[in-house]
Design a protein around this nucleic acid. Structure first.
Lengths: 189, 189
DNA sequence: GAAAATTTAGACAGATCTGTCTGATATGCT
DNA sequence: AGCATATCAGACAGATCTGTCTAAATTTTC
C-alpha cells in the first residue's frame, strides 16, 4: 500500500515553511528542519545547495502562494477598483490563518545581511506588489495613480503590522475601509 | 589630560545600538560589539549579565529615546489632536535619520523566541503607544476613541513599513495627511 | 532486470558564538 | 596611602551550526 511516499524535497520545503515562518530563518537550524521533515541530512544537500538555497526556496514558495491568493480573490472581477480592494480581502484571509506572524519577507529581512537571498526576495515581492497596485490605479483612471497606490500600499502595510504585532483582528477591516475612502475621494482624470 | 574617559558600559551601549540596529541582534555577535566599543570582553560581562541583558538595555534605550522624541514634538501643545499629529511629526524626524531601518522592536522580535527579552520590549512599546494614542483620542472627545486610535496606529505602522522596506520618503507625509482626514471626519461626542 | 537517481544514517571537520576564568592594571574614593 | 571598583588582554571551555563524506539501501527509469 505505502501511503503515496512524498519526496524528500517536498517534505523539506513543508517543514522549512512551518519552522522558518513561525520561528525565523536564523533561529531554526537545518538539524531541526531535517528532523521535522523526517529526512536524512544528506538529502537536504542533495536537493538544495545549502541553507541559503532552502531559505530562498521557502521564500519563493511564500511569494508564489501569495500571488495565487490575490489572483483568486481578483478572479472574475473587471473593475480595477474592485481588484484593488480584493488585495485587502486576500490579506484578510491570510491573517485569519492560525499562526499568522506577519510578512515572511520582512521578517526574514529584519536580521539579514544586505545582498542576502532574504533581501532579494523582499525586493521581488515588494516591487511586484507596488507595480500591481500602480497599474490597477492607472487602469482605474486616477489623475495621480502613483499617489493613490502609495496610499493603498501604506494601508496594506499598516494592516499587516497591526495583525502581526498586536494580533489586532480588526486591522484588515480598517485598512479596507480607509482604502475605500481613498479610492472614492481621489480625483480621476 | 586624558579626554574625559567614557565608561565601558556606555561605550558598549553605543556600539550595541549601532550594530544591533543596523545589522540585527542575532547576526551581530558580542565579539563585534566589544571590538567596535574598544572594550575588553570581561567588561561586557562585568557590566551586563550576558548578551540578553545587553539586548534588553539596547531596546530600553531605543524605547526611552523614542518617548523623548515624541514628548519633544508634543511639548507646548494643548490640543489633543495636535498632540496626536505630533507623533507623526516625530516619526518624520526619525525616518529621516541616516541608516533608518524600521522599528527596532519589530526587527528584533521578528526572529526571537516567544518569551524572549525582545518580545517583552516589543510589548512594552506597543502597549505604551496604543495607550498614548487612545487617551489622547479620549481627551479629544471622539465618540469612539478606540476606533480612531486604531486607525491612527495603522497609519503609523504603515508609514514605518513604507519608510523602511521601500525607502519611500513620502510615507510619513501620506500617513499624516490620512491621519488628519481621520481626525477631522470622525464623529465627536 | 540493469543502470541511474534518490535517500538513509551517522560520523566528522571547521567555523562561530556565548560565557568563564586568570592575573595584571587603572581608576576613584576617603 | 590604601582599598574597592572597574578595566584589560586573552586563553579556554562548551555548545551549536553548516556542510562534507562514506557506504549501503531504496526507488525510479528505461
Amino acid at each position: 500500500m505505502s501511503p503515496a511516499k512524498v519526496p524528500a524535497r517536498q517534505r523539506l520545503l513543508e517543514a522549512a515553511d512551518r519552522l522558518f515562518y513561525s520561528e525565523g530563518v536564523h533561529t531554526v537550524g537545518i538539524d531541526r528542519v531535517i528532523e521535522e521533515a523526517g529526512v536524512a541530512k544528506g538529502s537536504l544537500f542533495y536537493n538544495f545547495s545549502g541553507k541559503d538555497d532552502l531559505i530562498a526556496a521557502y521564500l519563493a514558495g511564500r511569494d508564489h502562494r501569495r500571488r495565487d491568493r490575490i489572483a483568486k480573490f481578483q478572479h472574475g472581477l473587471d473593475d480595477p477598483v474592485h481588484k484593488l480592494l480584493a488585495i485587502f480581502e486576500a490579506l484578510g484571509e491570510a491573517v485569519a490563518e492560525p499562526g499568522y506572524k506577519g510578512c515572511p519577507f520582512a521578517n526574514a529581512n529584519a536580521e539579514a545581511r544586505p545582498g542576502s537571498v532574504e533581501s532579494a526576495a523582499l525586493r521581488t515581492f515588494r516591487d511586484w506588489m507596488a507595480n500591481a497596485m500602480l497599474s490597477l490605479c492607472e487602469d482605474a483612471g486616477y489623475a495621480h495613480p502613483g499617489d493613490v497606490s502609495a496610499r493603498l500600499c501604506l494601508l496594506y502595510d499598516g494592516a499587516v503590522a497591526g495583525s502581526n504585532l498586536d494580533a489586532q483582528p480588526q486591522a484588515v477591516g480598517i485598512a479596507k475601509e480607509l482604502a475605500t475612502m481613498v479610492l472614492e475621494t481621489a480625483p480621476r482624470r
